[in-house]
Nucleic acid binder design. Structure first.
Lengths: 181, 181
DNA sequence: CCTTATTTTCAGTAACTACTGAAAATAAGA
DNA sequence: TCTTATTTTCAGTAGTTACTGAAAATAAGG
């Protein structure tokens, strides 16, 4: 049988629970401002602050969400590389744990957003530049000039981010950044 | 009376129109991936590639959207500082023009997202850290450690971005970044 | 003051995205 | 093989956000 918690322990547990809930809910809200599904951000937050891996059912229970919702968003997080699924020997069900190193998390997110959003944007810009190529009117020149500037800028940004993120393993870049601050 | 366009001119105008539409629509799609209202991104795209300022009615007409929609999103863009409203002497209606310098655009967006999203996130984290302060359980320590790491990271990022963006006027930073690439 | 051009607001609705819950599919153990 | 635990899918629905269109407010000109 479990040992009865002292009143002090019970109060502490409640306080931790409240702090965690605050974190999970707020992180969800922040996520949606950045174009990330609220539930996905909440699950991520939950897994980040849990020392051990959780099952789908535990996630469902903690966040009071349906199985389908939990499942889909866990898969999505695994797709991003922010969460790994682990199997414990002798157990049938899957457990999920988040990458906890903040710098690695950052690198993963940057790499994915580069791939999913910056690269496609650059391609769109190139396509637009091609379509207007050779046109001579003033309006056309303004269009070409602007799209070219935008494209060049995004390529530079893409390159800089690649450089920064390449060193995922190292601790030098985050350390250097701290001094840049 | 307007001069009749030659067949060549008409074809060129159509091609430019197509390229513009492509740009505006795709920019809208990209915007929504980044958590920005599609219409707002489209209006921004439109104003970026138009050499002259446009009226609300012209925006409505180009994008085939309602007055209310055009109005709200133009105001939002002005709120971000990405678009200015200008009045022409002797004319009653407002014209809108976008900031066209790509580096300035970038600085504005970074500054605003810092203010609207990074700063609030840091505050949430600090609040969560406070709430769990002094708790001694293993779970509590894991929570505190993680939220502190996250908080520190975001403060560093905030600081680095401030440094980069401070030099909005200068052309040195974008130039330097190009070589970092 | 009144008239008219222009901007602003907002109730109602449309469009979209996210979520539920249960059924179907899969895979492990007996 | 069959049974049971677990994961996956998905039709239907709820919830959210964005948009329209028209009415109200504002402001300029006469």
């Amino acid at each position: 049988m479990e040992k009865q918690p002292t009143p002090q322990e019970a109060a502490d547990a409640a306080r931790l629970e409240a702090a965690r809930d605050e974190f999970v809910m707020q992180w969800g809200a922040i996520g949606s401002a950045w174009g990330i599904n609220r539930t996905m951000a909440q699950i991520h937050a939950l897994l980040i602050i849990k020392p051990q891996a959780l099952t789908t059912d535990e996630v469902m229970d903690e966040l009071k969400i349906s199985r389908g919702n939990a499942h889909t968003n866990l898969r999505e997080l695994v797709g991003w590389g922010l969460v790994r699924s682990v199997v414990r020997k002798g157990e049938r069900k899957e457990y999920f744990e988040a990458e906890k190193d903040v710098w690695k998390m950052f690198c993963i997110i940057v790499r994915e957003r580069k791939r999913r959003e910056i690269r496609p944007a650059i391609n769109v810009l190139k396509d637009c530049i091609d379509r207007a190529d050779g046109l001579k009117s003033g309006e056309a020149r303004a269009f070409t000039e602007q799209t070219k500037a935008l494209c060049e800028f995004m390529e530079t940004a893409d390159g800089v981010l690649s450089k920064i993120v390449r060193s995922e393993q190292s601790t030098i870049v985050p350390w250097a950044l701290k001094f840049l601050k």
